[in-house]
Nucleic acid binder design. Structure first.
Lengths: 139, 139
DNA sequence: CTGCCTGCTCTATTACTTATAGAACAGACC
DNA sequence: GGTCTGTTCTATAAGTAATAGAGCAGGCAG
């Protein structure tokens, strides 16, 4: 798992970690059952505090994406093939989608360009249908 | 401009105001040149502090969407027909799009469903090509 | 001219968030 | 026993969010 962060970004570090993990799972780089680095390990690799990684992992756990325990460490709990969204997710997500697409529209991207960008992005996911690099990866 | 906020949301109020204005412009409810309520007026209508509205308007101004001055008050500076995006916008926006679409993918929405949602959302914009309710609106 | 409304700026306070840090505990594994 | 794991506690410094009040300069209607 190559994880690139921008420590100078206005986006909180723990949020960036969360986003990168979500994207990696969507892209098929991390499949269900894949092990993530331990909080202390990842923190050391990224040069940040392990509490920050802990916060990111805890957020991912609350979102249903990670399974955390002393036994197995941090493990991916679901991916794109694990089943339909949990109830309540789609409404919230739809609202955020509306805001984001409105932003592009307002800035002058026409509907076709917006949809093309969406298509390109979605097409970029699931590039590794069977897991490559799912276990014992380093940052 | 009907502006509905959730004061109990985890999303900051000033951010919600910004998002609603962006969506209204994308939907054609506010066209270039349309006047928005004054900061004090909107704050009173929403039952919040005028500094919070000020912060939202200032954010919209920095994004190039609003024009603020003592003469004309708050006026919409651009809409979907005002021209192409400013340089640098698309990269940042694309990254945020990637994160958001990854989130849906991971939660089990398949590519077709995601693109359908995008299509529906974009199709919902620009419903009023010529401005209705652009001037002197209340909240 | 007066009064009012406008954006705009300043200080200030309270509460929460972010990121840091250090310490400790229980369970698993070799 | 030693080392790794997640987990939990306290603590601190810096930043953000939202509140509040005061004031200024300019436009404009009366």
């Amino acid at each position: 798992m190559i994880l690139t962060l921008d420590l100078n970004s206005e986006i909180p570090i723990y949020q960036q970690i969360r986003d990168r993990v979500v994207e990696a799972v969507a892209a098929g780089e991390l499949a269900e059952g894949a092990a993530l680095p331990s909080t202390r390990q990842l923190a050391a690799d990224l040069g940040i505090n392990f509490h920050t990684v802990n916060k990111a992992y805890d957020l991912l756990r609350r979102e249903g994406l990670l399974l955390l325990n002393r036994k197995s460490g941090a493990v991916v709990r679901r991916d794109a093939r694990s089943g339909p969204p949990e109830p309540g997710f789609t409404d919230d997500w739809g609202a955020r989608l509306r805001t984001l697409l409105a932003e592009a529209t307002v800035q002058g991207l026409d509907g076709a360009a917006v949809l093309a960008a969406c298509g390109r992005t979605v097409g970029g996911f699931r590039v590794r249908p069977e897991g490559a690099r799912v276990e014992g990866e380093s940052v």
